[in-house]
Design a protein around this nucleic acid. Sequence first.
DNA 1: CTATATATGGACCATTCGGTCGTGAAAGAA
DNA 2: TTCTTTCACGACCGAATGGTCCATATATAG
Lengths: 196, 196
Amino acid sequence: MPRGRPREFDTDAAVERAMGVFWSRGYHGTSLPDLLAATNLSRGSLYAAFGDKHGLFLRALDRYIDDALARTDRELDPGKNALAGLRSCLVGYVDRTSGIAGMRGCLVVATAMELAAHDAEVAQRIQRFLKGMETRMTAALARAQAAGELAEGVEPATAARLLLCLLEGMRVVGKTAPDRALSQTMVETVINRLAH
Amino acid sequence: MPRGRPREFDTDAAVERAMGVFWSRGYHGTSLPDLLAATNLSRGSLYAAFGDKHGLFLRALDRYIDDALARTDRELDPGKNALAGLRSCLVGYVDRTSGIAGMRGCLVVATAMELAAHDAEVAQRIQRFLKGMETRMTAALARAQAAGELAEGVEPATAARLLLCLLEGMRVVGKTAPDRALSQTMVETVINRLAH
DNA sequence: CTATATATGGACCATTCGGTCGTGAAAGAA
DNA sequence: TTCTTTCACGACCGAATGGTCCATATATAG
């Protein structure tokens, strides 16, 4: 059994707060003082717990990706209707890419554009997220197809890639053009075209 | 008539080289020495010509956007068939988001994610690009519809927003998942669904 | 109690940041 | 020629960067 003073701060909470800072400022745009203020940690504690800025960033990115994939798993729960799940997934993105929420953007997309080309550890995580989303949507579309709910000639893999690009594109467009109504009808149109 | 030594360096060429650096490293990831090396300018010359780093960045961003919109104008030339123009536009994005080219990414998308939320001058330019792309595609779709080439129930404005999100999403996905074949069939599928 | 382990806060480090300035060379216009 | 303008080079600036270290306080285990 370990002796001595136990860890007093909540590591997960610190990661979550750091995630918020990286999310709104980007990796290079976030300074150590920014992170110290957000986490309420001292320099020594932060470096002892996470190694360095990059290590903390990876932790935050992992956290973000885990959350996003878990939410998608909930929305595309195989127990529920597949098409309804995809619809709620898309509608969720409409919410997250409209108005103020839309301007917050997406940590994965921002990180992909900022670091993926020069940072293999980051690139691998981005790939994990994108592949994860794509396979989940492919599976949901396949279930919809098996249930006879898909329109003629709709290939699950192809449609999943389309939805993936659509979702990530919404995050980009949502950064400055939060036209909620048009996004909403766009998503409905896509779903209606996919379904029969 | 002006007297004295004439300007010896090509301002536009310097902007273009700076654009390349910002493109691959991002705004915060690009240092003054990076820009000096890329442009072959001295510190004094660069500041005299562009004011500061931010000013040079805006010039580079404007240049990038102008180029992109001009290319789209060429592809969606009203003199040609509208649907064929849209197809070549999408195919061009497949090229630009696959393999090595895909990993280069897009300056507009990267800038939107990195700076748009905190920089009004940047946000306005991102909006100019997105609006410009959307209106051009809306117009092309309207021409296709007028020519009776569009499938039943396809609304130009809605479809244009869909294509806009699709294209920007391809830039994101292309950063790490350069699956050319799937992108290609996805684009073909979309066009075929749009057309009758 | 003592020993151990973990926190804090801040001093401190070398490096790099964006930005300013002055000197001197170079070249066209008068 | 002489004047004027623009360039390159590099020293220089204060501030901020990411990162290390240490003295101290505190709380638990033995």
